[in-house]
Design a protein around this nucleic acid. Structure first.
Lengths: 117, 117
DNA sequence: TTATAATATTGCAATATTACAATAATGTTT
DNA sequence: AAACATTATTGTAATATTGCAATATTATAA
């Protein structure tokens, strides 16, 4: 008797089964799915003109953790930013946020009238 | 020599460090952070009047997996639903979606003018 | 050049998420 | 009642996420 242990993709999100739009909205949402990253966006929004050097001091987490969250926000295209001297200059990418707003508006449009549940 | 291995919260999101609003938006976003759950919402939105019995057949994942995703959407208050006979009747909770739209609109408002990054 | 300051990366432990087979629970048919 | 249909739960394996200490990188200041 011989056993073939076939287990290919347990634990991985099956992105290939879904549309590009579904995957994109999910990725953006996922990046927003942590309070620290929401807090970072709130701070960036509160600071005018992108003069933002000390995000680390504003977020109640250790510096490497904040750095990691910033990286994820940038990967998801939710913030733009560059290093300027020995500090960073990040700001919100309004386009991505608006993409979400536009998508969710469509999603909520029909569901307003639903009274059965 | 004696070692005290103190490691309390490694791996857990530190929700207590953030505001209620930040946590709520993050939880909603997190629930939206998977293409299958986006697909479920799209399907629910496409079907009028909540006559939705066969979500499982519409999502390209195994039935237990779909059931799990539905549970998460319900936990996050993104869908409402009840069992009706031997089928389910789910529909989108427009209030939660609108909560996100409202929040993101505020977040994107200031960032439109940012030109430094 | 040698600090100093700010951010990034690495490595690791702990927890969370994803997916599904097997099974349970529950209502509907026959 | 027995078979069927539909959804939920349990258990488990694999991967992902979270958080931080230690360290690296890079630019500025002394």
């Amino acid at each position: 008797m011989q056993y073939y242990n076939i287990s290919i993709s347990v634990g991985i999100t099956k992105s290939e089964n879904f549309t590009d739009v579904q995957n994109e909205i999910a990725l953006l949402s996922k990046a927003l799915g942590h309070p620290a990253r929401i807090a970072i966006l709130e701070y960036l929004n509160g600071v005018d003109n992108c003069i933002c050097g000390d995000i680390v001091n504003e977020i109640p987490l250790a510096q490497p953790t904040v750095s990691q969250h910033l990286k994820e926000l940038k990967n998801a295209n939710l913030i733009k930013g560059t290093i300027e001297g020995n500090s960073i200059c990040y700001c919100i990418n309004g386009n991505s946020i608006e993409k979400l707003i536009f998508y969710f508006s469509k999603l909520a449009s029909k569901s307003k009238n639903s009274t059965c549940c």
